[in-house]
Computed example of a mutant assay.
Amino acid sequence: MNEVIGDLFSLAGLTTTLIGAGVTAKAVILREDDAINIGLTRYSGGVREEDLQLPMVQNLLWSSRAAKYGLIMVAIGTALQAVPILWRLIYST
Rank of each mutant, 00 (worst) to 15 (best):
I72L: 15
M73D: 12
L54H: 07
D34M: 01
N59Y: 04
N2F: 00
R88T: 03
N59P: 00
L71A: 08
A27R: 14
L71F: 15
S10L: 14
L52D: 11
L54M: 11
A25D: 07
N37A: 12
S10R: 13
G6T: 11
A25E: 06
I38Y: 02
G77Q: 08
R88S: 08
L86G: 12
I38P: 13
M56D: 09
Q58N: 01
L52I: 11
A66F: 14
P84I: 02
T78V: 14
T24S: 11
L71P: 07
S10Y: 08
L60V: 05
V47E: 05
M56I: 12
T41N: 14
Q81V: 05
V83R: 00
L11T: 03
G22I: 04
L30M: 05
W87E: 01
T41E: 10
W62Y: 08
A75T: 12
Y43R: 15
W87Q: 05
L60R: 01
I36R: 00
S92Y: 02
W62E: 13
I85H: 01
A25M: 09
R42P: 03
P55Q: 10
A35C: 04
R88V: 00
L52W: 02
E49Q: 14
W62H: 12
T16P: 00
G22P: 12
G46L: 11
T93S: 05
E3F: 01
V74N: 06
I90L: 07
V74H: 13
Q58Y: 04
G6E: 12
I19T: 12
R48C: 00
G46N: 09
K26L: 10
E49I: 12
G70M: 10
D51L: 06
G77I: 13
E50F: 03
E49N: 10
M1N: 08
R65P: 04
T24D: 09
A66W: 12
G39I: 02
L80T: 12
D34E: 15
A27M: 14
Y91V: 06
L30W: 06
S63R: 14
Y43E: 13
L8Q: 06
G46R: 07
R48P: 02
G39C: 02
L52P: 04
E50H: 08
I36W: 00
N59E: 09
R48G: 02
G77W: 03
D7V: 00
E50D: 10
G39L: 04
T16Q: 11
M56Y: 05
G22M: 08
V4N: 08
T93D: 09
V23R: 09
M73N: 05
N37L: 04
A21G: 15
A75P: 02
L61S: 08
E3V: 01
A12L: 10
M1W: 01
W87M: 03
G22S: 09
G22A: 13
G45L: 10
A67D: 11
S44L: 12
A67K: 10
T78W: 01
I76P: 00
R31A: 04
V83L: 09
N59W: 05
D7Y: 00
L40Y: 00
M56H: 03
N59C: 03
L18K: 15
L80V: 15
V74T: 15
G45C: 05
V74D: 10
G45I: 07
K26R: 10
L11M: 10
E3K: 03
W87S: 02
